[in-house]
Write a protein that binds this DNA or RNA. Sequence first.
DNA 1: GCATAGGATTAACACAGGTTGCTCTGAACC
DNA 2: GGTTCAGAGCAACCTGTGTTAATCCTATGC
Lengths: 220, 220
Amino acid sequence: MPNPFIRKLERRFQLSEADRQALIQASTKVRHVPAGEDLISEGDVPDHVFLIQRGFACRYKILPNGSRSIVAYLVPGDMCDLHVAILGQMDHSIGTLSPCDVVAIPRETVEDLTTNFPTLNRAFWWAPLVDEATLREWLVNMGRRPADLQVAHILCEVLVRLQAVGLATENSYDLPITQVDLSDTAGLSNVHVNRVLQELRGQGLIVTKGRHMTIPESSA
Amino acid sequence: MPNPFIRKLERRFQLSEADRQALIQASTKVRHVPAGEDLISEGDVPDHVFLIQRGFACRYKILPNGSRSIVAYLVPGDMCDLHVAILGQMDHSIGTLSPCDVVAIPRETVEDLTTNFPTLNRAFWWAPLVDEATLREWLVNMGRRPADLQVAHILCEVLVRLQAVGLATENSYDLPITQVDLSDTAGLSNVHVNRVLQELRGQGLIVTKGRHMTIPESSA
DNA sequence: GCATAGGATTAACACAGGTTGCTCTGAACC
DNA sequence: GGTTCAGAGCAACCTGTGTTAATCCTATGC
């Protein structure tokens, strides 16, 4: 399977063979991480960058009342926290939602890449801007739309993002996360997420078979 | 009054006299914009950067049902959309909430600044990262906290941000926006924002006199 | 001084979604 | 084959917030 990160970048940037080789070089050391583990904790000053190769992770914060608020998904091909250095320290944590394959790229390697490969440098700055736009989208979506639209939005976003790295068909994908994860994302109770999913199933908008999610309409 | 943008940067970066002069040079052409006007519209590919010198503006999106969702405030010293170029086009609009004094810096000038003044370059990349962290904070705050905490959070955030540019006292500031603006921010109805404000006043957590907002507890 | 308009305030009513607590299912493990 | 446990499903009840729609206030312009 081709490197999903490279695959994602190539949809947007013209990578030279040298760019591609450099990225492949940098991401040889794959580490396996089980579900429910932190990659980076709030307050950390990470000295390397993580690249998700397989599985789902998320950015999250723990509220004073102990509940977890997921503020972003990280799917294969996503990179975390290239630029935290400028900010100082992490304002949130990053944890796995499913078992993941993760590459940790040391800071020096990243600096080397950005210095010697202008296209990669550009690409590395582009990623957080996309993240920011997605955050705005989520902010609009969560909390001010009825629960069914919220959940539907999330499911569709994941479809599109997985398609971009070749991990989804025209209208379906594997979703290795629980309903509780979904509820922590949408800011709904798990009970209500369950209600909503059933309603969506009832309307034929989604079809689930175990962890496999199909969205029939999306192929129309 | 000193330039609020410079004031903000100096809290974080060591600006040389040259840096400061370059910024002052770049922001001489102040434009006055009345309330309720767009600076940039969704879909635009802006060819200059805006710097708010006075007044409140916001990033917002219009939902399919016509309602407005405010996803960020821009207060004096804030800069908008230095880096949209990388993304392509604006995914949201920027509009004034109150009358504003705005400086438009042409792209070439920005490029000149980032090329010739390393500290400024660093500062310009720092700003959107802060924006992103703020967005995460908002995403957590809005929609999954009771309305009173949401509104309180917003009011306190504005206090801190205005203090950073010398436009607030220890515990008070001028808030030139309406309750409708607040409700479009929190994702609440204007009626409920009104209820919440009265409750906060009743508890002595805020004191309002016209547009002037005081938060007694914050000085404790 | 009067008219006007945007903003703030209030009240009555309806409902989406939270909470609690239970049951059911299936996979992993001994 | 039985046990265990996480995840999914379900029902009853309750409350926070939205909706509507009317009224009041305060600046502003004529």
